Simulated scan of single mutants.
Amino acid sequence: MKQKKNIILLASLMSSLVLTGCASNDELIAQQKNQTEQMSVLESKVSTLESQVGTLEAELQKQKETDSEIYQTVRKLDVAQGELKAQAQQQADKAVMYYTIKQDDTLYSIAREQGIALEDLLQLNPKIANPKRLLIGDVLNIK
């Protein structure tokens, strides 16, 4: 009888250990399921982020191409502007090389207006016979 009690007691103890082990396995299974769900959510987020990175990289490449085109256009415009400046300077230089005498002009007033010395103006215009007598409409060299 005592042996029967010990066997029943031992069976009860083993039964409760098995149930405890099962409860622990259930908890582990629940944790594993929870972790699997979390990993799935994280994988989804990573996939979304990778897609966004791909989109941003494509946009960045397009922007680089646009920037390159803009840079090339600006360079072309700079070159064209430089050429136009050179042409304008040449035309300005040619335009300023001569001066047409107007009413009340004197050699002194013309020299002062053009920023040159009176003596230089006379040297540039040896055809002037009488510096005190200028004719309206005559053209003077000033460079």
Rank of each mutant, 00 (worst) to 15 (best):
142 I>Y: 00
138 D>N: 11
82 G>M: 00
70 I>M: 03
6 N>I: 10
68 S>L: 15
57 E>S: 12
31 Q>R: 14
23 A>R: 11
133 R>M: 12
72 Q>C: 12
119 E>Q: 09
58 A>H: 07
142 I>F: 02
76 K>L: 14
56 L>V: 07
46 V>M: 02
32 Q>T: 12
62 K>G: 06
110 I>N: 00
16 S>Y: 07
84 L>W: 05
45 K>N: 00
78 D>V: 14
69 E>N: 10
20 T>R: 11
96 V>R: 14
38 Q>R: 12
96 V>G: 13
65 E>D: 06
8 I>G: 06
39 M>A: 09
143 K>G: 13
139 V>G: 03
92 A>H: 05
30 A>H: 00
109 S>G: 04
98 Y>H: 09
22 C>K: 14
88 A>D: 02
53 V>Q: 04
139 V>T: 03
46 V>L: 02
5 K>D: 04
122 L>D: 00
143 K>R: 11
85 K>L: 08
7 I>N: 10
105 D>G: 03
60 L>H: 13
72 Q>I: 15
126 P>I: 03
19 L>V: 07
71 Y>E: 09
8 I>N: 10
49 L>D: 04
127 K>R: 15
38 Q>W: 14
40 S>L: 12
132 K>C: 07
94 K>Q: 07
77 L>Y: 11
138 D>Y: 05
137 G>E: 00
100 T>F: 01
71 Y>R: 13
2 K>A: 15
45 K>Y: 03
18 V>D: 11
52 Q>S: 05
68 S>Y: 15
115 G>F: 04
88 A>W: 04
30 A>V: 02
22 C>E: 07
101 I>N: 03
89 Q>E: 09
93 D>W: 04
23 A>D: 06
